[in-house]
């Protein structure tokens, strides 16, 4: 009896440990697999030409990822420019100004926004954002645009990243001790001055991390951006130009990647780039968060 309990305990703890090790090894396996697949490309092309070259002619064996990288960065930065003030001010409103029930009401709103699948955001983008950019916003700036543009992608992406960033910001403001604000208020500062000088300063590292993680989340977004950005391989010159995002490149070409030599290798290299960049960003900003929580 005792023996069998011991035995069960032993076996089960080994099992738990192996599950944990498996989970920890999985990302290493992903990284290794992608590196392994892209070595085919890296052995024939220089890394710097792959990244900085503008020439994308897969059938001639020319793989320049610069148009995709620059499109992805543009879309993501634009999206963040739109969603940053929205998230920051609304998190301030919800934690500082608003009565409690408003926050209670907003929680499910944020949940639902976070839960809507990206393909549905894409449908919304096609129905609303693309015509909006093409017919209303572009003419305002005397630009010619079909609507399928970096700006459309950025608007869709900004809405998608709102729940993610907002949730983190709410957490940041919740963690700041109330006494700090009260001290400032009792010295005669207005509510806004307190927020500006105390809360924003105290929460600065958390706010920065929220935006950083929002950036990495938006960078990896595939389907919704793919549907509205236009998918033209070019270096975009204005926000009304079409682009082609890096995840979109992978998703769009998986079907034909077996027919052209080293094309599959190139797409896996794109995945590796994405994986590497996002892991690095995540590590940096998660580290900042963990540091600030431990103090």
């Amino acid at each position: 009896m005792v023996l069998s309990r011991r035995l069960i305990d032993n076996v089960s703890s080994k099992w738990m440990l192996s599950c944990l090790i498996f989970c920890l090894l999985l990302p290493l396996a992903i990284g290794a697999g992608l590196v392994f697949k892209s070595t085919g490309l890296l052995s024939t092309h220089k890394l710097s030409t792959l990244i900085f070259s503008e020439d994308w002619y897969p059938s001639d064996g020319q793989f320049g990822f610069w148009p995709f990288i620059i499109s992805s960065v543009w879309v993501t930065v634009l999206a963040l420019i739109i969603s940053m003030p929205l998230c920051l001010l609304s998190s301030i409103y919800l934690t500082q100004y608003a009565p409690k029930w408003v926050l209670k009401f907003m929680r499910p709103v944020i949940d639902i926004l976070a839960g809507i699948p990206s393909v549905v955001y894409g449908v919304w983008g096609l129905l609303v954002v693309v015509p909006l950019v093409g017919d209303k916003i572009a003419p305002m700036f005397h630009a010619d645009s079909l609507g399928y543009s970096l700006l459309a992608g950025a608007i869709v992406l900004s809405v998608m990243s709102i729940p993610y960033i907002l949730n983190m910001l709410l957490e940041v403001f919740r963690q700041i001790p109330l006494e700090l604000g009260e001290a400032s208020l009792s010295l005669g500062a207005t509510k806004w001055e307190t927020i500006k000088h105390v809360f924003l300063r105290k929460g600065s590292s958390g706010i920065l991390s929220a935006f950083g993680l929002g950036f990495s989340k938006a960078l990896g977004e595939t389907i919704a951006v793919l549907m509205v950005i236009g998918n033209v391989v070019q270096i975009p010159h204005s926000v009304f130009d079409s682009g082609y995002s890096l995840p979109g490149l992978i998703a769009n070409n998986y079907g034909e990647m077996m027919s052209i030599p080293s094309y599959d290798s190139a797409l896996m290299f794109a995945a590796l780039l994405l994986f590497g960049i996002i892991i690095i960003i995540n590590v940096i900003f998660r580290y900042i968060i963990y540091k600030s929580e431990l103090i």
Binding site: C23, L24, L26, P27, A29, I30, G33, L34, K37, L213, S216, K217, L219, G220, E221, T222, P247, I250, A251, Y254, L267, M268, A271, L274, F275, I278, I279, I281, N282, V283, R286, Y287, Y290
Partner: peptide
Amino acid sequence: FFLDVLWGVPSIVYGAFGFT
């Protein structure tokens, strides 16, 4: 920390890896 970082990996990367 590690799991939090993993959370940020986009699904297309999982898809590409799964395909490989």
